[in-house]
Nucleic acid binder design. Structure first.
Lengths: 205, 205
DNA sequence: TTCGTCATGTAATGGGTTACATGATTAC
DNA sequence: GTAATCATGTAACCCATTACATGACGAA
């Protein structure tokens, strides 16, 4: 998931690690970002795998094997997505197994790079996500119906709020799907961005 | 967090592991539960630490040291919370460091056992959680304001939906806090609760 | 010159998962 | 008798975090 997000960002422009982390925070929800302890090892792996390249050669390769661990600064390193990987990126996004939407994080990352994704693939991912969230909703609903009376006020409140949240997510996804379908129907013509009538006032039960 | 939830459940009634897992699913959001690979090791640790006890002695203790790993069924094992720990449970809940509300999961577990928690502690935890979520909201708002125009429709939608979600959570917490304060005022007799003007109608931004 | 921010990285650790392995009990 | 479900547990792994370590560069 992290590697996926990195590829997505480098698809737009080359960057060095520090900058990457800041951008990542944006994509992953504006809240907390990934730590360096995850980021740099990931970049290392990806460079080794040939997914990305750097403007500078691997400094480790130049050193004798028994050199000290080489910590500290070695100059700013700009990472670039490999040309072949960049071309194949839309295929990677198109891998629409359950992993694409079962986990909310993975789904979010995919959504963030939807502009590099074919319309039909977008639709598949959105619908998969909706199915997943709907299943969650049914589970919560059943649980609430079964246990109502038996639970204390706080647990009940927690579940009620959770149910409302997933409910809202389903509606949100439905709107995205509608928009997507409408535009797919218009088929390549003028891409007049339609204003989605989102934001019905929350009917607080 | 897991250990905390286990203690909370065993505080209500003794249970065996399998049952514990089902109840845990309820507490942790009705969706997916913890796996056995987490649950049983946790129970083992907690028994070793003297937090909980079983109706049967540790079967490993009876076996010679070179015995095979003892896999498979050995009878249903009922876990009970230790008397001292049960009495001190409210103290544990009262540990209101940032860890109690910074992580949504921990907060949820604490909320689920609020009935074993003193009113003032409940209030501290709820207010701490609200501060955390409000900070998140500000972060998201700033990010949205800063980048608006520059981001594509999907990323924008993602952030907009995220912002609405945290916004709803803040309002939800405010309601819980109001109720809590109102009841604290009534129960305490003389202690007049300062009229909190927090239930503003949902001004969906 | 010293402090804050930018910048890169490793090591130890943590908290969880999946896959595996086994067996009791119940319903058909 | 056999299949589904109940029930307990280990081992290998995954992905992330925190703590640590280093150093360049610009501004006060």
């Amino acid at each position: 998931m992290l590697e996926f997000a990195i590829l997505g960002l480098l698809h737009q422009t080359p960057m060095h690690g520090y900058e990457l982390r800041k951008q990542l925070a944006q994509v992953l929800g504006g809240l907390r970002s990934i730590s360096y302890g995850s980021l740099y090892p990931a970049l290392k792996r990806m460079r080794a795998a040939g997914l990305i390249s750097t403007d500078e050669p691997d400094p480790h390769a130049l050193l004798p094997a028994d050199a000290p661990p080489l910590t500290g600064r070695r100059g700013k390193i700009v990472y670039t997505i490999t040309a072949e990987v960049k071309e194949r990126f839309h295929e990677l996004v198109g891998q629409t197994g359950p992993e694409a939407y079962d986990d909310g994080g993975s789904f979010g990352v995919r959504l963030a790079f939807f502009r590099h994704t074919a319309s039909d693939v977008r639709l598949r991912i959105l619908e998969g996500r909706r199915r997943t969230v709907e299943r969650q909703r049914e589970g919560l609903r059943a649980s609430l119906g079964r246990t109502r009376e038996r639970l204390d006020r706080y647990t009940l409140e927690l579940q009620r709020h959770g149910l409302e949240s997933v409910d809202r997510e389903v509606r949100w996804l439905s709107e995205l799907i509608d928009t997507e379908r409408r535009e797919a129907g218009e088929a390549g013509g003028s891409s007049t961005s339609p204003s989605p009538a989102a934001g019905e006032p929350p009917t607080t039960t």
